[in-house]
Design a protein around this nucleic acid. Structure first.
Lengths: 209, 209
DNA sequence: GTCTATACGGCGATAGAC
DNA sequence: GTCTATCGCCGTATAGAC
């Protein structure tokens, strides 16, 4: 084959297939040859639509960010909007746990990351937050949400807690069991989100006074 | 050369050299061949002391966690201890920014991660937090700190903000400049830490009542 | 402009000699 | 516990067919 009458590939199709592959088999399974095979095409063909593998990975991450619901902005209460957004953000990452480790290697050029920032910033400013404060609040919530996703979905303690018995006197076995980790993470996210929003309410009052 | 009379390598020496290499040239520069060359040895020799490259990377991350100061536990005030710990944690990550993206791929087996968890959990319990709450508080603070490090040290928006002019109506140019990002991140960390601790004080009062 | 085939250098990891 | 040799995979550059 040479040039087909209609293109077999497109950036969108490549990114979608890459996300499917990562979801199904993990980040390690994403190689250009493997992905090309999945698309019924030869390896180097991808490079007509994608600059490098890092570029592709960035696009995959951005596709996940594109699933974050932003319909809560604008809303009647900045607190309620932020809370809904945080849960929606976390849910999008939870839907693609294998992608989560890749959020650690950003290279810029993620349109949906900016779309998120724009919506949150705008919502906060409309609710009366000073612009500089709104920037910080958006960033700090993102820190908490992505950090939580990383802690939660990217693995953690090994299953065999007995190895550590005695070495860490304050931790009991419950902390070290992988099965327990999931419920700890869910509860920690909820507790942290509430604490963060409570603290931000205090700040909002102080900053408007 | 065959077997030397005294070992040329040790796990500790390998991990230290790997951390130096990553600090100096970034994560991508860390290959078994390159690291071996740095140690004056042949590539496969490393495998006598390290199981896989992932094992090595885990050990490098754990070495950074080993630099986190924990002397604030136990302390007179859980809030002050937590605040000092958060800053010390962030400082350790800031000292090794190139390692930060690797915290997203944990595989377990990081003794210093458990050492941190043990100290924080113990400090909170001693201060009167119920055990289940203390577990969550330790986790949620870790989320915020690591998420913040990732957002801060692992790169972000591209330098050329003009590209995005108009597409994201609520963001002004200040958000998009890389130089601004550092001060935004520092301020967001401080704001978030204060909000989190304020919110946790409310929770502490409620939980003890 | 979009595909194919081929090729290069580097990678993580193993096998076996000393 | 180190060496050398080697394997199979990787990202991707290049050249050519249509």
């Amino acid at each position: 084959m040479a040039r087909p009458r209609r293109p077999l590939l497109s950036r969108a199709r490549i990114v979608a297939a890459a996300l499917d592959l990562v979801d199904a088999e993990g980040l390690e399974a994403l190689s250009t040859r493997r992905l090309a095979a999945e698309l019924g095409v030869s390896g180097p063909s991808l490079y007509n639509h994608v600059a490098t593998k890092d570029d592709l990975l960035d696009a995959v991450v951005d596709a996940v960010l594109g699933e974050v619901d932003l319909s809560m902005f604008p809303g009647p209460s900045w607190r309620a909007s932020l809370e809904a957004w945080a849960r929606s953000y976390r849910a999008a990452l939870a839907a693609h746990p294998n992608v989560v480790p890749a959020i650690g290697q950003p290279r810029g050029g993620r349109p949906n990351a900016l779309r998120l920032a724009d919506a949150v910033f705008g919502g906060l400013v409309d609710a009366g937050w000073p612009r500089r404060e709104a920037t910080r609040v958006g960033a700090l919530l993102r820190y908490f949400i992505t950090g939580s996703a990383l802690g939660t979905f990217a693995g953690g303690f090994p299953d065999d807690a007995a190895v550590y018995a005695g070495a860490y006197p304050r931790l009991d076995q419950a902390h070290l069991l992988a099965e327990r980790q999931q419920e700890i993470d869910a509860a920690a996210f909820e507790t942290g989100l509430t604490a963060l929003l409570d603290g931000l309410e205090l700040r909002f009052a102080a900053v408007r006074a």
